[in-house]
């Protein structure tokens, strides 16, 4: 089948999203006021380390001042990568057509 792999990957992503939605509903139901789910797993690891009494000896020189600025920079990072991938794949496809 020509698009067999695309379909399989799409199905996998749908399953992934569906499990997320179910899981989210279950978690939201048990969450107390002010608690937030879906944080970073490294926060948990950091919590484990800080519980042992360790204090980080240095911090980041600069941190994004807000969640919005942080997501801007993340989106920018993804955009840079996506532009390069799209350019190269388009270039290859174009040169195959004309060859």
């Amino acid at each position: 089948m020509k698009y067999g792999m695309e379909l399989a990957v799409a199905a996998l992503i749908v399953v992934f999203a569906a499990v997320f939605l179910f899981q989210d509903a279950a978690i939201q139901a048990t969450l107390g006021d002010g608690e937030e789910a879906w944080g970073g797993a490294d926060g948990e690891a950091a919590g484990l380390i800080e519980a042992s009494g360790y204090e980080p000896w240095t911090g980041p020189l600069w941190a994004p001042p807000s969640g919005e600025v942080e997501s801007l920079l993340f989106a920018l990072q993804a955009a840079i990568g996506a532009v390069i991938i799209g350019y190269v794949f388009g270039y290859w496809r174009g040169s195959r057509r004309t060859a």
């Binding site: 970073g40 797993a41 490294d42 950091a46 919590g47 240095t58 911090g59 980041p60 969640g67």
Partner: peptide
């Protein structure tokens, strides 16, 4: 903010 993120990277100052 510092704790948001991913598990792959060890955060600044977290390796003695």
């Amino acid at each position: 903010l510092q704790s948001i993120g991913d598990i792959m990277h060890i955060m600044e100052g977290f390796l003695p």
